[in-house]
Computed example of a mutant assay.
Amino acid sequence: MHTEHDWITTPLTADLLRGALDLERTEHGLLPHRLPARARAQNTNAQLAMAEAQPSGVRLVFRTAATAVELDTLRTKRDYAGFPPRPDGLYDLLVDGRPAGQASGTGGNVLTIDMATWDGEVEPGPVGTVRFTGLPAHDKDVEIWLPHNETTELVALRTDAPVEPLPDRGRRVWLHHGSSISHGSDAASPTAIWPAIAASLGGVELINLGLGGSAMLDPFTARAMRDTPADLISVKMGINLVNQDAMRLRTFGPAVHGFLDTIREGHPDTPLLLVSPVHCAIHEDTPGPTAPEIDELGKGRLVFAAMGDPAETPTGKLTLTVIREELSRIVRQRAADDPNLHYLDGLELYGASDAAELPLPDNVHPDAATHRHIGERFGELVFTEGGPFAVRN
Rank of each mutant, 00 (worst) to 15 (best):
A137Y: 05
A137E: 11
H138R: 05
D139K: 09
D139V: 11
D139L: 15
K140I: 04
D141W: 13
D141N: 14
D141S: 15
V142P: 11
V142H: 10
V142M: 01
V142T: 11
E143R: 11
E143W: 13
E143Q: 14
I144G: 10
W145D: 08
W145L: 11
L146K: 07
L146T: 14
L146S: 15
H148C: 09
H148R: 08
H148T: 10
N149K: 15
N149I: 10
E150G: 10
E153Q: 07
L154C: 01
L154I: 06
V155E: 02
A156F: 02
L157N: 01
R158D: 12
D160Q: 09
D160V: 10
D160W: 09
V163H: 15
V163A: 07
V163S: 05
E164Q: 15
E164P: 14
E164H: 11
L166P: 13
L166R: 15
P167Q: 01
P167T: 00
D168N: 10
R169P: 11
R171G: 11
R172I: 02
V173Q: 14
W174S: 05
L175C: 08
L175N: 04
H176R: 04
S179V: 06
S180H: 02
S180L: 03
S180I: 10
G184W: 03
S185P: 08
D186M: 14
A187K: 06
A188T: 12
A188S: 09
S189G: 13
S189A: 10
S189C: 15
P190R: 01
A192E: 11
A192S: 14
I193R: 10
W194P: 12
W194E: 04
W194Q: 07
W194L: 02
P195F: 04
A196C: 05
A196T: 07
I197N: 06
I197F: 06
A198Y: 07
A198S: 05
L201Y: 03
G202M: 03
G203W: 01
G203L: 00
V204M: 02
V204H: 06
E205P: 08
E205Q: 05
L206P: 13
L206W: 10
L206G: 13
N208K: 12
L211Y: 15
G212Q: 07
G213T: 03
S214R: 05
S214W: 07
S214Y: 08
A215R: 06
A215G: 13
M216G: 08
